[in-house]
Nucleic acid binder design. Structure first.
Lengths: 207, 207
DNA sequence: CGACAAACGGAGCAATCACTCCGGTTATTT
DNA sequence: AAATAACCGGAGTGATTGCTCCGTTTGTCG
């Protein structure tokens, strides 16, 4: 786990912080366009800095990606917080729409979204659990749906976004319609048991 | 498009066909265990043959993967055909369960399943469309569901299988329950329009 | 201003990978 | 059995990648 450079003993120099911002912006652009397999040299080129500068700020390629994921999770958590203010238990649906739309515009590091920075993922999942409880309390979502089910729902949306965004950037909306229709209260229960929290933790911490 | 070696002018020698089978089996095993990024050298090592033998039979790594995908699609189409004999329009659900279970045991080339060998993919999707029509005719599936929706459903299952199979090999069953619940006839229609066939074709032919 | 720690760029390194080449071997055919 | 065409193994090639090293430049502070 190397979320970023170690704790700085002194504040960064002015040119250093500017180059760091440039690197993050360039990484977002390059990974969005070419995927995570894009080379770090390309990121440095787009940022207009040398390799040494990149690696002094982010000791490894993974650390750079982690920083981007951190940004996305930060905004995702913010979206969940804001969605909690929606009335009548509609917050969960609102959140799924907001976060999916955001992901569709930042597809670069989608493959790592829920498999990195576990502390923030836990925080996000806690907020989502609250949204789920509220929605179930209002009878909008079936009572047997669990928080692990919702994580699989977000895996599912992530995959649809990643697969379709180039040629049909809104296709995920239809798929989300379908998923939410399945989440509504229905005649019976879902036929199979949900994923246990322990199993999901193992999946999230190494995939 | 290089599905395999060019048309053989003469039948293969006995040792050649055996080595070809060994290579396919080894490729399945290696890609299942290590993913598609595994090296071809590793495949040759497990198969017990040299690199030259591998490349004479499969002119490129992609051709080798295509051959594996071809096998999977072959069995998938067979499953769809067999599911069509199920009564009362339950064939679609049966097919989704069968094909998902099969994919869970051959996860190696899942990333390429629906993006390679377009002729067979079209054939498979045609069979699935028949299953959908039959299910809708019996009132088991909502009338506004389209064949493109089903393709997204299979993308979704593919992603869940790929993500969870290591630590929870049956997690996809719960997710499929949820998807099918959403596919059942409901009060209203899905809120957004389905993916057009043309857009889906573009997605399938380059992703 | 002057000095120094910090930051800079980019050539170079080691590892990996898909793929080729070729001298020796073997199945097949007459 | 002898001829031959097909087949075999695996060292070698060229390209790419993540990452390091180091001589030079620059922001910061007394």
């Amino acid at each position: 786990m190397t979320p970023e450079a170690p704790v700085p003993s002194r504040p960064l120099r002015r040119d250093a912080v500017e180059n760091r911002d440039r690197l993050l912006a360039a990484a977002n652009q390059v990974f969005d366009e070419q995927g995570l397999d894009a080379s770090v040299a390309e990121v440095a080129r787009v940022a207009g800095v040398g390799m040494g500068t990149l690696y002094r700020r982010f000791p490894t390629k993974d650390a750079l990606i982690d920083a981007l994921v951190h940004q996305i999770l930060d905004i995702t958590i913010e979206m969940a917080t804001q969605a909690a203010t929606e009335p009548d238990g509609t917050g969960l649906e609102r959140f799924l729409e907001l976060s999916s739309a955001y992901q569709a515009q930042h597809p670069g590091c989608l493959p790592r979204l829920w498999n990195t920075d576990h502390a923030m993922v836990r925080k996000a999942r806690r907020r989502i659990a609250d949204l789920l409880a509220e929605a179930q309390h209002h009878g909008r979502i079936r009572p047997d749906l669990t928080n692990t089910d919702l994580t699989l729902v977000m895996f599912s949306i992530r995959a649809i976004v990643a697969t379709t965004r180039m040629h049909a950037p809104d296709a995920w909306r239809r798929h989300l319609d379908l998923l939410i229709a399945g989440m509504r209260p229905g005649p019976g229960e879902l036929g199979h048991p949900p994923l246990s929290q322990a199993d999901l933790d193992r999946i999230l911490t190494r995939a």
